[in-house]
Write a protein that binds this DNA or RNA. Sequence first.
DNA 1: TATAATGCCTATTAATCAGGTAGGGATAGT
DNA 2: ACTATCCCTACCTGATTAATAGGCATTATA
Lengths: 170, 170
Amino acid sequence: MKISQKGLYALQAMMVLTRRYTQGAIRIRDIAYEENLPEKFLELILLELKNARIVESVRGAKGGYQLRRAPSEIRLSEIIRLIDGPLAPFGDADQLRVLIDRDADHSALYKVFLEVRDAAAKILENTTLADLISRGPENKSRPRNGNRRSNRRKTELRVLPMVAGGEGHD
Amino acid sequence: MKISQKGLYALQAMMVLTRRYTQGAIRIRDIAYEENLPEKFLELILLELKNARIVESVRGAKGGYQLRRAPSEIRLSEIIRLIDGPLAPFGDADQLRVLIDRDADHSALYKVFLEVRDAAAKILENTTLADLISRGPENKSRPRNGNRRSNRRKTELRVLPMVAGGEGHD
DNA sequence: TATAATGCCTATTAATCAGGTAGGGATAGT
DNA sequence: ACTATCCCTACCTGATTAATAGGCATTATA
């Protein structure tokens, strides 16, 4: 399973909607601004999330997006599967199970793939948006002064192109 | 981490070289034939594995490829990293650690990504080519009659295109 | 020593995907 | 009406994937 830029955007957007869960519909533009995402691209992502019934929209002026379910009921796996496909590193879980059964020569290999997917699934099924927020910066038992997002570091850490020969570690 | 077709080919080829570890250099053509892989494409893959010093080649007539180290010393992680890049589902482990440190707003999210990569790494670092073969069809305590690869089912299970709306499960 | 069999290496390609951008239509609040 | 917003389809560019092609270099062996 590979999480694309689009997948990351989706997760970021969902985190915004989670933080603002009680505040009604949030405009695409506001989400894009808060997370510094390309607005039109984000629009497509939200549309997809809406069609999958994870979020819902309010149309017209004063419109926007909001979660359709409580943040504790939305698992990361659901979002990632929607945007980036199966969690398995190759094919999907069902295919792998079939291959394990039918392709004796490689079944040991496919079993390893399935192990990997199960390990990923375990983590991503058990992490909800609510978890993410409760582990977030506002919840680190810091003195809360109401002036949120004040001197937070605006990280401009561009993810590097990852050259092939780059000192091991993955 | 996503394993490409190329990555799968690489692993299949390495399994052949493992099964034939004692037999000296094996021709590309023979590997391709045994595993039903496109010969010229496999050639490129083997070249890459050679440049990474995982296998070695013997040139000229009667040439071919063989492992450079014992099968028990070659981990799946090594092959997959070479062909398909980092095991992390997003970026690589080092990047994730930096992001966790520097991007407070999303550090919970990146921590989950890192958990996933660690889980995958744990499995793939701890599985060697030797493991794969010892778990394979020839080692299932079946009566060995010397007539290997006799009536094995030649699986022609093409991996499906994976339509987007295909009944959940990944 | 000629020849055939191999690996080495670079280039090329068609198809698909990733990451966007653009713009007009539909809908709702004022 | 007017304006703000989401809805939807189309389009675009560059990278990646999964190959194929072909000539060069090296080696075994007849």
